[in-house]
C-alpha cells in the first residue's frame, strides 16, 4: 500500500470530507454509548434535544460556542503559519486576569468605553503571554509546543494564587473567586432571559476580521507563505521571525478575548474552573474547520452543541457527559485522516 498525491482534488471531495469525518466520529462514539448499555436512538435524541430542542437550548449552544470560536480562531491563525500555539488555555486565563485586574473597580468608565477597554486589555494580556515562547523560538529555537503547554499550568497556578489570595472576593463566603466585574464592564445579554451575550457577536466579528486578514491583506499572505514554506518565504523577502511574532500576538490575543468574554459576559467573575479546556478544544475546532476562519464558526457551534447536548443527556441516562470530549477528540483525528484521503489516493503497490 502506498499513497500517491492526487494531481487535482475535486471540489466536492474537499467539501464533503469534513462532514463525512464528523459522521464517522459520531459512529465510532456510538460504540461507547452502546457499551454503557443505553439505547442509541434515545441517547442521540436526548443529545439533539438538549442542544437545539428549544429556544433556550439554542441560545445555550451559541453561548457555549462563543469561547470556542475565539480559541478556534487562535489555533487556526497560528497553525496556518505552522506556529504550534497549544497555550490557548493559558492565554484564555491571562485575558480573564486582565479583565479582573482592571474591570472590578480599578477603572470605571461608561459602558461604550469600558467594554472595548476590557477587550483590548484581554487581547494584550493573551498576546503578552505568548511573547515569551515566541522569543524563545525565534531567538533560541526552543520548541514552542512544550513551552506553551507548560505555561498553561503556570498560569492556572497564578490564577489560583490570586483568587485565593490578594484578589479574593471578600463577599464570596469563602469560595475562591475574584470580585465581580462592574456593571459598566459587563457584556450585555442579547436576548432577554437567556445567557447569550455580546461576546457571541464579538466572536462572529472576530471570525470575519480574521478571514479578511488572512485572505485579503499582506499580513495574511505572509502568514500563509511562512506556513507553507518558511525558507521560500524568507527568500522572497518575508521576515519569518516578524511574521511568526505577529501571528503569535494575533493568536494569543484572540484566546485572551475568549477569557474576557467568559468573565465579563457569562460568569461575571473569575473562578479557577471557568474554562473546562476551551483552549485545548479550540485546536479541535480549528482542525475541524480545516483552519478556515469562517469554518471555525460552524465547527465551534457543532462542538458546543455536542457539549451542551451531552450535558443534558447525561442527566437523563447513564452516559457520562465526557462523551462530548471523546467526540471532540475523535472528530479531530477523523478530520486529519479525511484531509489525507482527499490529498492522496491509495494505491496497491
Amino acid at each position: 500500500m502506498r499513497f500517491e498525491p492526487r494531481e487535482k482534488v475535486p471540489v466536492w471531495m474537499a467539501g464533503v470530507a469534513p462532514v463525512l469525518a464528523v459522521l464517522a466520529a459520531l459512529l465510532l462514539c456510538s460504540v461507547l454509548i452502546l457499551w454503557s448499555g443505553e439505547s442509541l436512538v434515545q441517547a442521540f435524541a436526548l443529545l439533539l434535544n438538549g442542544a437545539f430542542g428549544s429556544k433556550f437550548a439554542i441560545t445555550e449552544t451559541l453561548t457555549r460556542a462563543t469561547p470556542l470560536i475565539f480559541t478556534g480562531l487562535a489555533a487556526a491563525v497560528a497553525f496556518r503559519a505552522k506556529f504550534w500555539n497549544i497555550g490557548a488555555e493559558g492565554q484564555f486565563y491571562f485575558g480573564a486576569l486582565a479583565v479582573t485586574g482592571i474591570g472590578t473597580g480599578l477603572i470605571s468608565l461608561p459602558a461604550p468605553l469600558m467594554i472595548p477597554l476590557l477587550v483590548i486589555a484581554g487581547a494584550l494580556a493573551g498576546g503578552a503571554l505568548l511573547y515569551v515562547p515566541v522569543v524563545l523560538k525565534t531567538k533560541l529555537k526552543v520548541d514552542e509546543v512544550v513551552t506553551t503547554l507548560l505555561l498553561n499550568f503556570v498560569v492556572i497556578l497564578l490564577v489560583g494564587y490570586l483568587i485565593e489570595g490578594p484578589w479574593k472576593d471578600p463577599m464570596s463566603l469563602g469560595w475562591p473567586q475574584a470580585a465581580p466585574v462592574i456593571a459598566e464592564g459587563e457584556l450585555p445579554e442579547l436576548l432577554a432571559k437567556t445567557r447569550l451575550h455580546l461576546g457571541f457577536l464579538l466572536a462572529l466579528g472576530a471570525a470575519l476580521l480574521v478571514w479578511w486578514l488572512m485572505r485579503f491583506t499582506v499580513w495574511g499572505y505572509e502568514i500563509r507563505a511562512v506556513g507553507h514554506n518558511a525558507r521560500a518565504a524568507s527568500f522572497a523577502g518575508i521576515s519569518v521571525n516578524a511574521t511568526v511574532l505577529r501571528t503569535a500576538l494575533i493568536s494569543g490575543g484572540l484566546a485572551g478575548i475568549a477569557g474576557v468574554s467568559e468573565v465579563a459576559g457569562l460568569k461575571g467573575y473569575l473562578t479557577l474552573d471557568i474554562s473546562p479546556g476551551f483552549g485545548y478544544a479550540g485546536i479541535a475546532v480549528a482542525m475541524l474547520a480545516q483552519l478556515h476562519p469562517l469554518g471555525v464558526v460552524a465547527s465551534a457551534i457543532f462542538l458546543s452543541a455536542i457539549f451542551v447536548g451531552a450535558d443534558s443527556m447525561s442527566r437523563a441516562i447513564n452516559v457520562p457527559s465526557y462523551l462530548a470530549d471523546v467526540v471532540t477528540a475523535v472528530s479531530l483525528m477523523m478530520v486529519l485522516l479525511s484531509v489525507m484521503l482527499v490529498r492522496y489516493r491509495i494505491r496497491r503497490s
Binding site: 485545548y280 479541535a284 462523551l323 471532540t328 475523535v330 483525528m333
Partner: peptide, 15 residues
C-alpha cells in the same frame, strides 16, 4: 496527531 491522541486518551479515561 499527538495533541489529538492526548485529547482522545484523556477523554476516554474520564468517560
Amino acid at each position: 496527531t499527538g495533541i489529538g491522541v492526548t485529547l482522545l486518551a484523556t477523554a476516554l479515561s474520564s468517560y
